[in-house]
């Protein structure tokens, strides 16, 4: 039992690390990740579950971080965009997004990555048409989506659903490798 307006302690695992923080019952998981844990990669775009920008993975399922209260995530295992790649590396999905220019302003990108991650874990092979529908809950206002489809299909071929980063140390450094093969 909580008291309205009073924060309670929430313990959970985020990207494999034990985390603890305080949350009012009304604090959403997305808000908790951002404001209490400082993980601002999860973005909030509508607070209605429509835009998909806040999508995170909870116990293996992609869910809307804005439609789940932090207290409901107590004891759960949460994955966010910050956990996709090992330090200094890039997850194959991230690399595929970079290669395909599957982002512009980048605001919807973390949510799209997490949705795509779960989609590829469900099955690595997607038809383009099925993927359109599978990703239709993540809105992007910049790209027109086709490069996103390109990226996710390429990442599937590269085994992105298996998890782990691609081990290419230094790939995260912005100025390196941008003139790479296309």
């Amino acid at each position: 039992m909580t008291v309205a307006g009073e924060p309670v302690r929430v313990r959970l695992s985020v990207n494999g690390r034990a985390e603890v923080g305080l949350a009012e019952p009304r604090t959403t998981l997305a808000e908790f990740l951002r404001e209490e844990l400082g993980l601002t990669g999860t973005h909030v775009g509508c607070e209605q579950g429509v835009c998909g920008a806040c999508t995170v993975v909870v116990d293996g399922a992609a869910v809307r971080g804005c439609l789940m209260f932090a207290v409901q995530a107590d004891g759960r295992a949460v994955e966010t965009v910050e956990g996709l790649a090992a330090e200094g590396g890039m997850h194959p999905l991230q690399r595929a997004f970079w290669d395909a220019q599957a982002l512009q302003c980048g605001f919807c990108t973390p949510g799209l990555l997490m949705t795509a991650l779960v989609a590829l874990r469900e099955r690595p092979e997607w038809t383009r048409e099925a993927l359109r529908e599978r990703l239709s809950g993540n809105l992007c206002r910049c790209t027109g989506y086709s490069t996103v489809l390109d990226a996710v299909l390429a990442a599937g071929r590269a085994g992105a659903g298996d998890g782990g980063d691609d081990g290419s140390a230094g790939a995260g450094a912005p100025a390196s490798g941008e003139a790479g093969p296309r």
Binding site: G41, E82, Q94, Q101, P110, E178, A179
Partner: peptide, 27 residues
């Protein structure tokens, strides 16, 4: 001859890592 080439965007690795700094990300 960089002009005219489809080089990858240097903005992207940071954004892909979830380390963008939009206004609400700063306290």
């Amino acid at each position: 001859g960089y002009v005219g080439r489809a080089v990858r965007r240097r903005e992207d690795p940071r954004l892909l890592a979830g380390r963008g700094r939009y206004v609400d990300d700063v306290t």
